[in-house]
Amino acid sequence: MAAGGDHGSPDSYRSPLASRYASPEMCFVFSDRYKFRTWRQLWLWLAEAEQTLGLPITDEQIQEMKSNLENIDFKMAAEEEKRLRHDVMAHVHTFGHCCPKAAGIIHLGATSCYVGDNTDLIILRNALDLLLPKLARVISRLADFAKERASLPTLGFTHFQPAQLTTVGKRCCLWIQDLCMDLQNLKRVRDDLRFRGVKGTTGTQASFLQLFEGDDHKVEQLDKMVTEKAGFKRAFIITGQTYTRKVDIEVLSVLASLGASVHKICTDIRLLANLKEMEEPFEKQQIGSSAMPYKRNPMRSERCCSLARHLMTLVMDPLQTASVQWFERTLDDSANRRICLAEAFLTADTILNTLQNISEGLVVYPKVIERRIRQELPFMATENIIMAMVKAGGSRQDCHEKIRVLSQQAASVVKQEGGDNDLIERIQVDAYFSPIHSQLDHLLDPSSFTGRASQQVQRFLEEEVYPLLKPYESVMKVKAELCL
């Protein structure tokens, strides 16, 4: 049975990233139509530049190519590739079939990587351009969430054990800070992308030097003109047959890092959902379990974690691919890159769409948070109580021993009897502590235990987050809708 299948058929496997999760716009960027249309555009740009620099290419040939950029006979191309065992030459023939007058000058002087690699770089750039505003929107939604809850005390956790208090907004800023680093890295790697350009079979530009009869300047002009037509500021000066596969490492490393950030955020949300302090959106008709109707599973956060793990592992592909590119190139890269580049971007696209949807509907339960604080705060307040007693004339050592005994009794009630923490009640009825009984409410005010959390939130948002989001103001209103 021949390899390949009808990918629109229910009898043929289709990647869930495309069929179930990723956005239509990201799927289109990695589609065959987008790819092969870009090949034709690159052939047109090459012909236009070659004509401008004096090669015998007519206006009629150029116009014929322009008129057929979208006229792609995919069936013919597939048949040609089956016959020739070469995808680029299959599309040269297919393009030439609908451009008979231009057929002889299509791909003039070029090698397969002229269309293959340059198209990949265009796709990487455009895919990054799709991700950047999506990530900015996630940051914006979380920034709104953090600002609104900047002063809401909550129990902090280290080692997932109760620690000092923080605020809900401050905790959210930990998430935002990681995503801001990801946004900066995505922008950097996007701006650092260079075009492969017009380089020939081993990167020496020998074929173009021959076409222009040894004119170095025209060869350099050709490279520059096509690079500018493709919208790049610069091209690699040095290439082998391909652009260095280190570029793929750079791009997928940034995406993998984004995956790590999203995994951490969504894990926190899942843990908070278990504590009943916070939940992701839950639709009115949504079913959490087929057997347990009360369940409210954090399905979206779980999906993000599941896909983020996949995204983090994909960076190993370009690392290994770059390491086995012998001399000017081997074909070890080809099949692998067809999979890992598309999957990385479709996965990143999915987790950003999902995280935006989550961040637009996060639900906080202040009463649950308050109750958990009441359970733990008495123990945390013991040092403040000791200091207040010393100020009232008591002995630190005597007070410490009193607190120690009462704390152990209260802990026994919590752990052995399943009761509430009654340390404060014990202190309130103990005559030894009568000098500070009137101060206990103040000493137990949760806001006095959150330090500068709310001020940190305000400063972080104003100095770091809002300036970073400013270039994306025009796209901030787009909502994230999930079908599944």
Rank of each mutant, 00 (worst) to 15 (best):
G5L: 08
G5D: 14
S9L: 14
S9T: 14
P10G: 10
P10C: 15
P10M: 15
S12L: 11
S12V: 13
R20E: 00
Y21Q: 01
A22V: 13
A22H: 09
A22E: 08
P24C: 10
P24H: 09
F28D: 10
S31F: 01
R33W: 06
Y34E: 06
K35V: 08
F36T: 15
R37M: 15
W39P: 00
L44H: 09
W45G: 12
E50Y: 04
T52E: 10
G54Y: 02
G54D: 13
I57G: 03
M65L: 11
K66S: 10
S67H: 11
N68F: 09
E70S: 13
F74C: 15
M76S: 12
A78V: 12
E79Q: 12
R83P: 09
L84C: 06
R85N: 01
V88S: 09
M89L: 03
H91I: 03
T94H: 12
T94S: 13
C98M: 10
P100L: 08
G104S: 14
I106R: 00
I106Q: 05
H107D: 00
L108D: 03
G109I: 00
T111S: 11
S112D: 01
C113T: 05
Y114C: 06
G116A: 14
N118R: 00
T119V: 14
D120M: 07
I123C: 10
L130R: 09
L131Y: 08
P133E: 10
L135G: 09
R137N: 14
V138N: 11
I139N: 13
S140N: 15
S140W: 15
R141H: 15
D144E: 15
D144H: 14
A146E: 01
K147I: 11
E148K: 12
A150E: 10
T154V: 09
L155E: 01
F160M: 07
Q161Y: 00
Q161H: 03
P162K: 00
T167K: 02
T167C: 01
V168W: 06
C173H: 02
C173E: 02
L174M: 15
W175P: 00
D182I: 01
Q184K: 11
Q184Y: 10
Q184L: 12
Q184T: 14
L186Q: 07
K187Q: 13
R190P: 03
D191N: 11
G200N: 04
T201Q: 03
T201L: 01
T201P: 08
T201H: 01
G203P: 02
T204Q: 15
T204S: 15
S207M: 05
L211C: 11
E213V: 12
G214T: 10
D216L: 07
H217S: 12
V219E: 00
E220G: 10
Q221N: 12
Q221M: 15
L222Q: 02
L222H: 01
M225Y: 10
V226I: 07
T227F: 07
E228Q: 10
F232S: 04
A235N: 14
I238D: 01
T239I: 10
T239W: 03
G240P: 06
Q241S: 02
T244H: 15
K246S: 04
V247E: 09
D248F: 01
I249S: 07
I249E: 01
V251C: 10
L252G: 14
L252Y: 05
V254L: 12
S257K: 07
S261E: 04
I265T: 13
T267F: 10
D268M: 05
L271Y: 04
L272P: 04
E277A: 02
E279F: 06
E279A: 09
E279T: 07
E280S: 01
P281H: 13
E283G: 12
Q285V: 15
I287D: 02
I287K: 02
G288T: 04
G288L: 02
S289K: 02
S290P: 01
A291L: 03
A291N: 04
R296P: 03
M299L: 04
R300L: 15
S301M: 13
E302L: 01
E302R: 01
R303T: 01
C305W: 03
S306I: 01
S306H: 01
R309C: 14
R309M: 11
R309W: 03
T313C: 11
L314M: 14
V315F: 13
D317T: 07
P318S: 09
L319G: 02
L319A: 01
Q320M: 12
Q320C: 10
S323C: 09
V324H: 09
Q325I: 12
F327K: 03
L331G: 04
D332Q: 00
D333R: 00
S334C: 06
R337S: 01
I339N: 11
E343R: 06
E343T: 13
F345K: 02
A348V: 15
D349N: 08
I351H: 05
I351Y: 01
N357K: 05
I358A: 15
L362I: 12
L362P: 07
L362N: 04
V363F: 08
V363Y: 07
I369T: 08
I373G: 04
I373C: 07
P378L: 05
F379E: 02
F379T: 05
I386Q: 06
A388M: 05
G393R: 07
G393A: 07
G393N: 09
S395E: 07
Q397S: 09
Q397T: 08
D398P: 05
K402D: 07
Q408S: 15
A411H: 02
Q416F: 14
E417F: 11
G418P: 03
D422G: 08
D422V: 04
D422F: 11
I424T: 13
E425W: 14
Q428K: 13
Q428V: 09
D430Q: 12
A431F: 07
F433A: 06
S434F: 11
H437Q: 11
Q439G: 09
Q439M: 14
H442S: 11
L443A: 05
S447C: 15
G451H: 01
A453G: 12
S454L: 10
Q456A: 09
Q458S: 14
R459A: 13
L461G: 03
P467K: 08
P467V: 14
P467C: 09
L469R: 04
P471T: 15
P471F: 15
Y472R: 08
V475F: 11
V475M: 15
K477G: 12
K479H: 15
E481V: 11
E481T: 15
L484V: 09
